[in-house]
């Protein structure tokens, strides 16, 4: 692993792309087989809209995973965003944009804390973000008194649920899908259009070597946590839009985001993966959830199947890489 030079990691990213995409296509084909109308652009757009929060979270989580860490605090940040938005806006549409700005500031603050603690206090990220998860969740609940309060005006909720009709070619276009496209483009640019992507991979693969080569390891790590927190805020805003205010809005999403990245072929503890791992991993996971819904399986068994798929996806990629060596 550490001895393998760059070309193979490029190749691995190509394989990752295929793995996530293949799983997604297979699962979506299964959905379409059971419910042919899922092939209509309208329902596909709706599928994307509902997958949006997970997809955005996965993109943010990917940044942290590439650098070798985890961010367990994302779900808590998303919950905080939903609760804080409804308390701060409290039904006043004029306050929406200012509050969204405030939410991003809060998210970035959490990301900075995560990054600074990991980079300078040397607390492993799984512990750090577990701590901030408890902390942020506690703050959100203390602030709201443990129950959903306040109200979200329509212009806030539209971000998650507005759908334009009569759009040429695709028919309908949800605003959330535009948000996804913009976010993924930004996340792609961050990893492929700037030097940051190479730095993140280098830090995740071998931090000591990266440091000796002059990579600013601490800054790279901190930025990853900030990106992750920003994605959690974005996902929270969308969640508030289409599922409304609840105290467990973001519960468990952090693990789903990690699972999505891994299913898409990103390697835990860093050094391998691309933005497409996150995108197709998240779409695969969401397609899986949709498929299980259509099959009418009890909600509870969703967890089990997710666990099986997770183990199988990682097992398959281990098996492939062993065969290659």
């Amino acid at each position: 692993m550490t001895t393998v030079p760059l070309p193979s990691s490029r190749r691995a990213a190509g394989i990752a792309l295929n793995a996530g995409l293949v799983i997604f296509v297979v699962l979506y084909a299964a959905i379409a087989l059971l419910q042919p109308n899922y092939l209509e652009p309208g329902l596909f757009m709706n599928f994307l809209r509902r997958a949006a929060p997970l997809l955005i979270l996965a993109c943010g989580q990917l940044y942290v995973i590439l650098t070798g860490g985890f961010d367990l605090s994302m779900g808590a940040v998303a919950t905080l965003v939903v609760l804080a938005a409804s308390i701060l806006i409290n039904g006043d549409p004029d306050a929406t944009w200012a509050v969204i700005g405030t939410l991003y500031v809060m998210g970035i603050a959490v990301g900075l804390v995560n990054g600074l603690v990991v980079a300078f206090l040397k607390v492993p990220s799984i512990i750090t973000t577990l701590g901030t998860m408890l902390l942020v969740n506690g703050l959100a609940l203390a602030w709201s008194g443990g129950a959903a309060r306040g109200d979200l005006p329509d212009n806030f909720r539209n971000l998650g649920r507005l759908v334009w009709r009569g759009v040429p070619v695709i028919g309908t276009l949800p605003l959330a899908v535009v948000v996804i496209a913009g976010f993924v483009a930004l996340a792609w640019w961050g990893l492929n259009g700037t030097v940051y992507g190479k730095r993140a991979l280098a830090v995740g693969d071998n931090p000591r070597a990266a440091e000796l080569a002059g990579t600013p390891v601490a800054v790279t790590r901190i930025l990853a946590f900030v990106v992750s927190a920003v994605s959690a805020v974005t996902a929270g805003i969308l969640l508030g839009g289409f599922s409304g205010v609840s105290v467990n809005a973001g519960e468990g999403l952090e693990l789903q985001a990690i699972a999505a990245c891994v299913i898409g072929g990103a390697q835990l503890l860093g050094g391998r993966g691309s933005i497409w791992s996150a995108v197709f991993g998240a779409l695969s996971l969401f397609a899986l959830f949709t498929l299980l819904n259509i099959l009418g399986l009890p909600q509870a068994l969703r967890d089990s199947i997710q666990g099986l798929i997770l183990i199988a996806a990682v097992g398959a990629s281990m098996w492939r890489s062993r065969k290659r060596n």
Binding site: L130, G131, T132, M133, L134, L135, V136, N137, G138, L139, L141, A142, G146
Partner: peptide
């Protein structure tokens, strides 16, 4: 809830 914050 504050307990959870402190715990974290």
């Amino acid at each position: 809830f504050l307990k959870q914050v402190l715990r974290g």
